[in-house]
Design a protein around this nucleic acid. Structure first.
Lengths: 226, 226
DNA sequence: TGGCAAGCGGACGAGATCGTCCATTTGACC
DNA sequence: GGTCAAATGGACGATCTCGTCCGCTTGCCA
């Protein structure tokens, strides 16, 4: 995806346009981190030193901007999965994957919201990548379970549950690294095979590619006083 | 607080005003559940069948409305703590407490955001109640640890971490009970003494009464497309 | 039943954000 | 250097939300 967007939207651009595009992306990351992904587009434009029209021409919707701004982080997630799969110790791979994604959510403010918001819609290309990622992830899970390290009743949707709850935590407490690390540690421990005492309730129907965020009737919420 | 507000704001009201007040609160719960606590005040007023002026006269700020609308749920949380403390089996009490609060967050949509948003500010009265709650909670923790059920390295801030991450999860996935229950089960298992393998990272400085939500420089975020 | 203060509701002005339109500038190629 | 399409930026109209103001209504008590 990093590739296709570069080819489709950048190489053809005139030099000044390409320059402005990058300035906009950099500004977006800063502004979204500071004010959330609902920050006014004009703020991003001002910070980038361009007019709003330029911003809108390059990124017709806020969504397109968010996705482009955090594409790199998404790529990092994908790479982490590949590396996890390549690790000879499947549990180690799994653990690293969880820690990497969570660290990204923790350190790159604005990314958590983007992470959640970016799931629902997708280009055809995106969908394919996502499906591949899901297959890879399931392979990783099966291997880790076969090795007796990951509990047998771990369900792939539990990964989404973990990521979303961690997202919520770092959004509520931006900057509190200790809280984030603590949650990750607890979750990882409870995913270990040794931790399995008694049965878990049924897993969610949730999967990495069907988060029902766009489907349900709204419910956007946040701590009001910003 | 349930008491004081009834005395201060309701008994003196004329009958029609008192009736409207209740209709507003009921409408607020519904609207906040559907559209989040940022929903326009006018929407609440319309649903309650009153004018905006009436709404503003009764609840001068959105905050006051949110707090009043979810006061009952807050009381339920407080009661759950009292009951937990009364339980002869401290672990059972602890477990019930976590489950009760999380169930409330799960079932009462709109409450999670209110739960987080309601923390920062507080009347003097509130502050006192909160401190008492914190003391009670620490007693509960100590007992459960002494009984060898709760892991020794559990830190009271871990409760806040658990509640906030659960909040985030149910906000991202309103209606997915399975996901919520699953997270709660994992967290409870990892809080058990048997689950303690290896050291945890340092706990957060966070406490139940100093959530830095109002302090930090904004960063209100949410999945944009509602 | 009559008087009046409490209560009511909708209109309204202020302020913010969105996304477009258009006159002007500028980079790329001959 | 000249040409022209691509690119630019800011003004602007539309839309939304907020919170107040004010003339009308109604419950309560004598």
């Amino acid at each position: 995806m990093g590739e296709s967007s570069r080819i489709a939207g950048q190489d053809i651009l005139r030099a000044d346009a390409r320059r402005n595009r990058l300035r906009i992306l950099a500004a977006a990351r800063v502004v979204f981190a500071q004010h959330g992904i609902d920050a006014p587009m004009a703020t991003v434009a001002r910070r980038a030193g361009v007019g709003v029209a330029t911003l809108y021409r390059r990124f017709p919707t806020r969504d397109a901007l968010v996705r482009a701004a955090f594409a790199h982080q998404m790529d990092t997630c994908a790479r982490a999965l590949t590396e996890a799969l390549a690790d000879p110790d499947p549990w180690q791979g799994f653990q690293r994957l969880v820690e990497t994604v969570c660290e990204l959510q923790r350190e790159e403010r604005g990314f958590p919201a983007a992470f959640v918001a970016a799931f629902p819609d997708s280009t055809r290309e995106h969908a394919r990548l996502r499906e591949q990622a899901e297959r890879d992830f399931m392979t990783l899970v099966r291997r880790a379970q076969a090795a007796g390290a990951l509990r047998a009743d771990f369900h792939p949707s539990d990964f989404a549950v973990a990521m979303l709850s961690h997202c919520g935590l770092v959004t509520a407490l931006p900057g509190d690294r200790a809280a984030s690390r603590r949650l990750v540690a607890y979750l990882l421990q409870s995913f270990r095979a040794e931790a399995a005492h008694g049965a878990l309730p049924a897993p969610s129907a949730l999967s990495l590619r069907n988060l029902p965020l766009a489907a349900d009737g709204s419910q956007g919420q946040r701590p009001s006083r910003a």
